[in-house]
Design a binder for these strands. Structure first.
Lengths: 186, 186
DNA sequence: GAGGTTGATGTCAGTTGCTGTCATCAGCGT
DNA sequence: ACGCTGATGACAGCAACTGACATCAACCTC
């Protein structure tokens, strides 16, 4: 490889979150981010597909963890139990970075383009989960609906977890959200 | 008003769907759409916020119908029953345009940017539904989870409805999806 | 250790999405 | 006739991205 400061992608991601938080997404150009990270604009777009993607680095790691957990679930588990467990498995990467998650969430909530991207990531997570459930023999459309329900539970649990003053862990928030969903159909 | 061919917005929406279907989203410029509709590019962006929005004209009508239905539901109904009924209420606008819905769905499925926009519309529908449920006295996070579940049911029902060879009505597809979701928690 | 390979970066020109601004022009009421 | 209003055209401009080519350090091979 060429000579480079370590972790250009990491520096870009950090710079982007800082700038989006400081002045907002619209008031930040790709050139601004690149300069703060010490690279050129072109290099920014080599590391990230677009200005939004820079905030969604870890999403594929989450997806992998969830899919692996679904595949590894006990043979006889019911679909919703599998999804609940899988969503809690993916949280290990996040539990220790609540402050970072909050900054990210504030930035995303402030701009529809970023909300769209987050929704796409969640949707992708749902589709991958549905496929993993089908691979376990869960039929359609039960697999898809269980996957959607699991993603919704994750989303609402995450939302609760980053709320100010929340003391539960992310896994607990997700577990409670799942219990709440079960109560709805009782 | 000035002198104009009737329904410029409608002609733009039609031209856009045609072009996205014919050559794809990326291969269609805003200028292409405008020219086919007989207006200038600037006029296109006066009628639609961006190149994606042009495919999502009816979404606010759907949202209004759903929210109205939630507000009008019988006093004692359970949240999930309210959502199921509301999702079926919004279908009147769509039932007679299945072919159009199919064309639209194919175009959207072909491009992530359009998927993102559709997901945002569904998310907005979910948030509005949650607020309408809260206005009925449903507490958080039950309201949000019921809303998410309702949106997921709508989405999967819609997906089934536009599948080739499907004979059920949209309302029936949604009803069946809701029944399937209930079965998951049994 | 000369030379080729590789991978990350810089440079630059170009397309396109989208916006701000001002002029125009048809109808409408007075 | 007069001015007002709402939709449009004309045009300049910024910023998001892309493709093509050059560079340059580390590494590999002989």
């Amino acid at each position: 490889m060429g000579r480079w400061e370590p972790d250009a992608a990491g520096r870009l991601a950090r710079a982007a979150l800082e700038l989006y938080s400081e002045r907002g997404f619209d008031q930040t150009t790709a050139l601004d981010i690149a300069e703060r990270a010490g690279v050129t604009e072109r290099t920014f777009f080599r590391h990230f597909a677009d200005k939004r993607e820079v905030l969604f680095d870890g999403s594929s790691a989450l997806l992998n963890a969830v899919v692996a957990s679904i595949a590894a679930a006990p043979e006889a588990s019911k679909p919703l139990d599998v999804m609940g467990q899988a969503m809690q498995s993916g949280t290990a990467l996040l539990e220790e970075r609540r402050d970072h998650a909050r900054l990210r969430a504030v930035a995303i909530a402030a701009h529809p383009s970023l909300q769209e991207r987050e929704l796409l990531k969640m949707s992708t997570l749902g589709e991958a989960s549905a496929e993993a459930l089908r691979a376990r023999g869960v039929p359609s459309p039960a697999a898809e609906l269980a996957a959607d329900a699991g993603v919704a539970v994750f989303g609402r649990g995450f939302e609760a977890w980053i709320a100010p003053g929340e003391t539960r862990t992310l896994a607990e928030c997700i577990g409670d959200a799942l219990a709440e969903l079960r109560r709805l159909t009782a």
